[in-house]
């Protein structure tokens, strides 16, 4: 991002805002872990908060909002393969153990 001095001064304010938001969200995610909810819901809440924090870091600190399409494509492809890598092995083991459960006496 070829930022002018004026742009940089403006963005400093957003850096501090994001810092505040990250600190608050850290407290929230710890607090949320004390909630008496099911494991699945707890995982969901924690991951949502982490994703919000992560996107704040990526879009503001890493200036992702100011980048062009090339970089978005690279990251979208990586994210897609990342999802495949996470989901397919889990699905496979889940299906296999499911089948094993069926044959068990």
């Amino acid at each position: 991002m070829a930022a002018s001095a004026e742009d940089v001064r403006k963005s400093i304010k957003s850096y501090l805002l994001v810092f505040g938001a990250l600190a608050v969200l850290t407290v929230i995610t710890v607090a949320a872990s004390w909630l008496k909810v099911s494991v699945a819901l707890a995982i969901f809440i924690a991951l949502v908060i982490a994703s919000v924090k992560g996107s704040l870091v990526a879009s503001v600190f890493m200036h992702l909002t100011g980048e062009k399409a090339t970089l978005y494509w690279v990251l979208i492809i990586s994210a897609f393969f990342f999802l495949l890598l996470v989901l397919l092995p889990v699905l496979q083991t889940w299906e296999t153990s499911h089948l094993i459960d069926q044959v068990k006496p």
């Binding site: 990250l22 850290t26 992560g54």
Partner: peptide, 22 residues
């Protein structure tokens, strides 16, 4: 350097709940 550093921070943002909270 900053880009790398923020990424390392970002990874920790996920590591923390995964290991300490869930």
């Amino acid at each position: 350097t900053g880009l790398y550093w923020h990424f390392v921070d970002l990874v920790w943002i996920f590591l923390f709940p995964v290991f300490y909270l869930l």
